[in-house]
């Protein structure tokens, strides 16, 4: 005989197979795998001269060599690791600071909220790269940590504004009032109702922040303010390939493709995850 518990067992059907999600997993997965691999192994010593200057792609050097005779594929692989560390670190710092500030602003009194909104608008008016450059310059030394922190701070304003707007919209809905009349605490409302409902939009924003951070890190490195040598940042590789772009275009094309594939992969992954965790989209 079927019991009530059996009848009422939660419906665990999950449609976890959109093309978008799998394309994102594949692209990001390749970068993560390559990045992790470089921790224990790389084809060549990234700073060692292992071939002639500006060699074309061959069986020995799949992406050729740079102007100092270093293996280009090795440097691009290490660049994956740097981009992932910077993107994840900056997006995480931006998310933690931004979401916290955005939630506080949404719950604040009107005066505080207005002041907060105006401050955010001013911060957002400054380009992310400019703020990051200022923070790195203030840190006095260009290193990976200061680049991550700088980008995280710069991105947090965008996340904070988005979180504030989304939270205020959710707070107006009847299910929040129902939660209050059910005795749910404000903290419970935040974790049980607000964050799950603003997450789909935020997750897409985090992916954009990750992409922005990866691009901004490349830009900082291009300007000599990012990860210092021997870290093989894609931005530094692009900067070094600038003088040889006509004679050895692979030096500019390969890091560019690597950067674009990572950013696209992250965006596809975020879209796919949003669709898979959102019950209203999952049922379509």
């Amino acid at each position: 005989m079927t019991t009530l518990d059996q009848i009422a067992a939660p419906n665990r059907r999950r449609r976890f197979g959109s093309l978008t999600l799998w394309a994102g997993i594949a692209l990001v997965g390749i970068h993560i795998a390559v990045g992790l691999l470089t921790v224990v192994w790389s084809p060549y010593d990234p700073s060692g001269m292992t071939g002639g200057r500006l060699e074309a792609p061959s069986w020995l050097h799949w992406a050729g060599t740079d102007r100092l005779g270093r293996d280009f594929l090795t440097q691009i692989m290490i660049g994956s690791r740097i981009a992932l560390i910077v993107g994840t670190g900056a997006a995480a710092i931006g998310a933690i600071i931004g979401v916290t500030l955005g939630l506080l602003a949404a719950f604040a009194t009107k005066l505080l909220d207005d002041a907060f909104a105006a401050t955010l608008d001013i911060l957002i008016a400054f380009p992310t790269l400019l703020i990051a450059m200022l923070v790195v310059a203030a840190a006095d030394t260009a290193n990976l940590g200061s680049a991550i922190f700088a980008l995280g701070i710069a991105l947090s304003a965008i996340v904070a504004r988005l979180t504030r707007i989304l939270t205020k919209r959710v707070l107006l809905l009847d299910y929040i009032t129902a939660a209050r009349t059910s005795g749910t605490s404000w903290l419970g409302i935040v974790f049980r109702h607000i964050l799950p409902n603003i997450w789909p939009t935020l997750s897409v924003s985090f992916a954009l922040q990750f992409g922005l951070a990866a691009i901004a890190e490349a830009s900082l490195s291009y300007l000599g303010l990012g990860a210092p040598p021997p870290n093989a940042s894609w931005g530094r590789l692009l900067q070094e390939a600038q003088g040889t772009v006509y004679t050895a275009p692979i030096g500019a094309i390969a890091p560019g493709i690597a950067l674009v594939s990572l950013v696209i992969g992250i965006n596809l992954l975020a879209d796919g995850l949003r669709d898979s965790v959102d019950p209203t989209r999952r049922a379509r």
């Binding site: 009847d174 299910y175 129902a178 409902n197 959102d278």
Partner: peptide, 17 residues
Amino acid sequence: VQIVFQDPYSSLDPRQT
């Protein structure tokens, strides 16, 4: 003391079972 709201579409959290 409990309440039932007017709009059945906004009174239930869409992300909860």
